[in-house]
C-alpha cells in the first residue's frame, strides 16, 4: 500500500527515520557499513559489528523469507503499546523476523492472527499501512509483513 490509498486523509510516518515516506515506493531504511559490509536495522550512526562510523543509510528489500515468528496472544501493556484496541476487541497479531536476502533479518508485525497461517521459510512481503489514527484524524503509518499470496 502507498499513500495513494488514503489520498484525502492526512498521513504521518510513525518514525521518519524508519522508512522513506511519503513515497510511491516506500522502503525500510538500514545502515550499510563501508568497513565490514554489515547491514543493520534500523539505521544507526555506527556499525554494531566493527564499530566503524563509516556507515551510510541504505534501503532494505521488500521481500524475504520468514526466519521465525510468534502470535502476540494478549493485549500488550500500554504504555508502551499505542494500539487503540480494548480487551474486548483485541485480535491476536503475528510478529516475526523476515530475512532480507544479503542484508539483515527485520522484526515486524505480521498481518495474520493464527499460527496455522505461518511457517518458517515462507515468502513474505512488506506492506505500509495505517497502524492507528490520531485524534485529529491523521493516519499514523507503520510497516508490517504478510505472506506472499
Amino acid at each position: 500500500m502507498s499513500q495513494a490509498a488514503g489520498a484525502n486523509v492526512p498521513q504521518k510516518s510513525i518514525d521518519p527515520k524508519l522508512f522513506t515516506w511519503p513515497s510511491n515506493k516506500p522502503r525500510l531504511l538500514g545502515s550499510q557499513c563501508n568497513n565490514c559490509g554489515t547491514t543493520s536495522f534500523p539505521a544507526q550512526a555506527s556499525c554494531p559489528r566493527c564499530c566503524s562510523e563509516d556507515v551510510e543509510t541504505c534501503e532494505l528489500g521488500t521481500r524475504g523469507k520468514l526466519w521465525s515468528f510468534t502470535i502476540q496472544g494478549f493485549l500488550p501493556k500500554s504504555p508502551p503499546y499505542a494500539g487503540t484496541e480494548t480487551l474486548e476487541d483485541f485480535k491476536p497479531f503475528g510478529v516475526g523476523y523476515v530475512e532480507m536476502p544479503g542484508q539483515v533479518r527485520v522484526v515486524g508485525r505480521i498481518n495474520v492472527s493464527s499460527p496455522e497461517e505461518l511457517a518458517i521459510g515462507m515468502d513474505m512481503e512488506l506492506v505500509f499501512e495505517p497502524f492507528r489514527t490520531d485524534e485529529d484524524g491523521t493516519e499514523i503509518i507503520s510497516y508490517a509483513f504478510r505472506p506472499v499470496a
Partner: peptide
C-alpha cells in the same frame, strides 16, 4: 530502541 517499537507492540 525507538518509540515506534513499543508503539506497535513489539517491546515484549
Amino acid at each position: 530502541l525507538g518509540k515506534w517499537y513499543g508503539d506497535v507492540g513489539l517491546a515484549l
